[in-house]
């Protein structure tokens, strides 16, 4: 699993404060800790920075490249800011995160990616928003995103499609559809185009103590259909343990065995079955209930584990 580290992230109060103070040491530590934990790229999400983007992004690139060698992912809508940052990059091939299929974005952002030889994350989102259905999302990739890349002769091996994870708390119907969208996108192009998602979005608006189980279970379900790249917290040990369990097919724990059964069922286009679950084991029951909400079989509520 290729992890793009998500922790340089504007919604965090610490990041906000450090940015205000231009605290280079803070960001360097945050970067090193993520790379030490296995991040193969770092997402830089500082918001639009309309006023100071052309100063902040190069500053950030400079300080990060002093301490890490990995790809930097520019996660902003500020095109001038991205370009200022890209000019400063001297190490690994950077990533632009992201374009959508909205005409204005799709016109400009891929040209920038091509000009600066960057990878590009493209969202399956058109001007009328994010469709629920898997087929509609795949169609956006096939009918808008990929044709635009061909048109400008952008290397397909540098393209990353993000079919968009939405939260189970409020957008539950999207959750099973995303699984199928990833499954289809895997075979939609030859050679297959890389796919990445922002995993933790699946538990936005879910109470904090319940987010990990939802994230981890969904990760297994997405790995079942071929997910190999995600924006996630590389310091999240439980998540990485789940990824390792699936990758190494580690059957040494009951939960691990259940995760693998769920993984294999979904990979085989079967529904996970209650007979796979030892209902006397609370951990397995919790995983099972989580699968039920992520497949939209049971309506999500904050106390879904209690019923």
């Amino acid at each position: 699993m290729y992890i793009i580290g998500e922790n340089i992230q504007f919604m965090s109060d610490k990041v906000k404060a450090a940015l205000k103070e231009r605290d280079a040491r803070f960001f360097q530590k945050l970067a090193v800790s993520q790379v030490d934990a296995g991040a193969q790229a770092l997402d830089i999400n500082l918001g639009p920075r309309k006023k100071d983007g052309e100063e902040v992004f190069p500053w950030m690139v400079g300080l990060l490249e002093e301490v890490v060698d990995v790809s930097l992912s520019f996660d902003t809508t500020n095109i001038a800011g991205i370009e200022a940052g890209l000019k400063k990059v001297t190490k690994a091939q950077p990533i632009i995160n992201s374009t959508s299929a909205e005409p204005e974005r799709l016109e400009k952002v891929p040209l920038l990616a091509k000009q600066y030889n960057t990878r590009l994350i493209a969202l399956t989102m058109g001007k009328s928003g994010i469709p629920i259905g898997a087929d509609e999302r795949v169609n956006i990739a096939l009918e808008a995103l990929i044709p635009r890349m061909l048109e400008i002769d952008y290397p397909m091996t540098d393209l990353i499609i993000d079919p968009l994870v939405l939260t189970v708390s409020g957008c539950q119907q999207y959750c099973p559809e995303l699984i199928e969208a990833i499954r289809t996108l895997q075979v939609a192009w030859d050679p297959p185009i890389d796919i990445s998602v922002g995993l933790s979005n699946v538990s936005n608006a879910v109470p904090n103590d319940r987010r990990a189980l939802i994230n981890n279970t969904y990760c297994v379900m997405l790995m079942a259909v071929g997910l190999q790249m995600m924006i996630a917290d590389p310091l999240d040990k439980k998540l990485k343990e789940v990824v390792r369990t699936v990758e190494e097919r580690d059957e040494s724990t009951p939960a691990g065995r259940l995760y693998l059964k769920i993984h294999d069922r979904i990979a085989a286009m079967e529904e996970p079955s209650p007979e796979d679950v030892d209902m006397s084991d609370p951990e397995q029951v919790a995983i099972w209930k989580t699968v039920q909400i992520l497949l939209d079989k049971v309506i999500y509520t904050d106390s879904y584990l209690q019923v």
């Binding site: 539950q172 309506i299 904050d302 209690q306």
Partner: peptide, 15 residues
């Protein structure tokens, strides 16, 4: 007008 909240309140009351 929210399915999640509707179900949640039913749970709370039946609890």
């Amino acid at each position: 007008m929210d399915v999640n909240l509707a179900k949640q309140l039913n749970i709370l009351i039946s609890d």
